[in-house]
Computed example of a mutant assay.
Amino acid sequence: MTAAYTLYAKPGFAATTIERLCSEARISNRAFYECFGGREDLLQALHDRCVDESLEAVAKALHEAPNSLDGRVKAGIRAYLEFTTADWRRARIMHVEVRRSGDILTLSRQRAVDAFARLVEEASADFPMAATLNRRLVALGIIGALQELLIEWLLSDEQPEIDELVAVAVHIFGRSLGTS
């Protein structure tokens, strides 16, 4: 898992062979196949771990946040961005390689987006929103915006500061949910 964490982040999933993974991990190909059906299964396990850990971090922050929509939005966004960017490999696997892997992570990505959408919906459920808007679709839209901000952070020549990402994401979320 450690070797995949580094290699799948850079040079990336497509450029990482089983042989390279095994060489980096100092295990035999046989030992690899005793644990995983292929490099796709390893990518799935790695992505799932990153998503599960980030969901835990956000859920904890939301639980500890002030009982206001603005407080929840700020706490959830900061927790997600800080957790995800604490290790660029995690951010890269979750937001770049998940897209580059083709169909391999489509279902995993959909499950992750659904889980985060539910968190947004639950965190905002007690607060009014324009009656004509579908809360789930709003959640999906703001999750997409956050993902694009993280891709910008990863791929930009002039990487924005995390505080700047938080401020922009809070603004987008706040405007979408009616907090600002």
Rank of each mutant, 00 (worst) to 15 (best):
R39V: 05
T17E: 13
N29V: 10
A9F: 05
A15L: 10
F13S: 03
S23I: 03
L43A: 02
E34K: 13
S23D: 13
Y8R: 05
C50M: 04
C50R: 08
S28A: 06
L21N: 02
T16H: 06
C22F: 08
I27M: 11
L46R: 04
Y8F: 10
N29H: 14
F32G: 04
T17R: 11
A45Q: 00
E40I: 01
V51F: 00
D48K: 13
G37E: 14
Y33S: 05
R26I: 00
K10P: 00
V51W: 10
A31M: 03
C35D: 08
I27F: 12
I18S: 12
R26W: 06
C35L: 13
G38Q: 07
E24I: 09
L43F: 06
A15D: 13
A15N: 10
G12F: 07
A15K: 10
Y33P: 00
F32Y: 08
Q44K: 10
F36G: 02
G37A: 13
A14I: 02
I18A: 14
T17W: 13
D48N: 09
S23N: 13
R49C: 01
P11F: 09
P11K: 12
C22A: 07
T16N: 07
Q44M: 06
F13M: 03
T17P: 04
C22Y: 07
D48A: 08
R20S: 12
N29Y: 15
S23G: 07
T16W: 09
C50H: 13
F13N: 01
A14H: 14
A25S: 06
A15I: 02
C22K: 14
F32T: 07
Q44T: 11
E24Q: 15
S28N: 14
Q44R: 11
N29G: 13
Y33M: 01
A15R: 13
E34G: 07
G12E: 08
E34R: 15
R20Y: 12
N29C: 09
R20T: 12
G37Q: 11
F36Y: 14
A45V: 00
C50P: 02
E19S: 14
C22R: 11
R30Y: 15
R20H: 15
A15T: 00
A25E: 09
Q44E: 11
T16Y: 04
F32S: 07
F36W: 15
D41T: 05
A9L: 05
N29F: 09
E19G: 04
Q44N: 05
D48C: 08
L21P: 00
E40L: 01
L43H: 05
H47Y: 15
R39M: 06
H47L: 04
A45S: 00
T16K: 01
A45G: 07
C50F: 04
D41A: 06
N29L: 09
H47T: 04
G37S: 06
E24M: 14
E24F: 14
E24D: 12
G12V: 06
P11T: 10
F13H: 03
R49W: 04
